[in-house]
Design a protein around this nucleic acid. Structure first.
Lengths: 128, 128
DNA sequence: TTTGTATTTAAGTGATTGCTTAAATACATT
DNA sequence: AATGTATTTAAGCAATCACTTAAATACAAA
């Protein structure tokens, strides 16, 4: 039967095709939002970057050198993480002398605060 | 000077060493929390897994085959994502006949709901 | 103008990711 | 017992990640 070849999946006798279609429609309408949110979560889903975002929010602004000292990592390693965050528009920079201060971009403050608030949820995941 | 060799970083004349030390202490006390949260965010920071979590929450439970159909991906690809979520204790399974239903693990409902609620924040990131 | 400081960029590397296809496993149904 | 269905596991692979070291850039200060 052509149908199954096209679907390229198993033949579920008891599948609820209404449910499947409803879910597909729903996802389609939210596709862009999922990609954007996944991007932010992916950036925050690295312990170093999560700490950087926490520190920038907490201290208002920090330079790569400060972060390097605080996190005990080389400056280039920090710089590359900051670049990712800046390319995504999550952090912004301000030059002062030869020091470059990084801070959380105004439009991203809310989502970053919300992400960091997850820290305070008890019982995050029992398996870890 | 030995100091700089040990620190292995740049020499910041204007560095605020009180700030640096305060931040270091603060991070140390929260280290484990950052690792756990980063793990969850990293798992959710993939569009496919984010959709899976959304669907499982929305539909209560779904089998790999359903998800394969809904997301238009092969069953093994879905299965491997589900394995990651299950290994992290975020989802759980229930057997019914030869179908295995996945759902969000009770203890993870809150954090997953909170993560999915980020979807509703307006102006997520302007750059994307 | 030379030196020093702060940062970024580049190149290289080993580890991890997310898929693919094929095979294995588990178990219903006939 | 044999076949079919649902799922997982394994192996392979290109792409990405997160670091390293070295070099380049930018600019302040002597």
């Amino acid at each position: 039967m052509l149908k199954y070849e096209v679907m390229n999946t198993c033949i579920r006798v008891f599948a609820d095709s209404d449910q499947i279609n409803r879910c597909r429609e729903d996802l389609k309408s939210k596709e862009e939002g999922f990609l954007e949110l996944a991007d932010v979560l992916n950036l925050a889903g690295n312990a170093v970057r999560l700490k950087i975002l926490y520190l920038l929010k907490q201290e208002n602004e920090l330079c790569p050198c400060d972060l390097s000292d605080i996190l005990g990592m080389t400056v280039p390693a920090i710089s590359q993480h900051l670049k990712k965050l800046k390319d995504a528009g999550i952090v912004t920079t301000k030059k002062s002398g030869q020091t470059i201060f990084y801070s959380v971009e105004a439009h991203s403050q809310r989502i970053i605060s919300s992400v960091l608030d997850l820290f305070n949820l008890p019982n995050t995941i029992p398996a870890l």
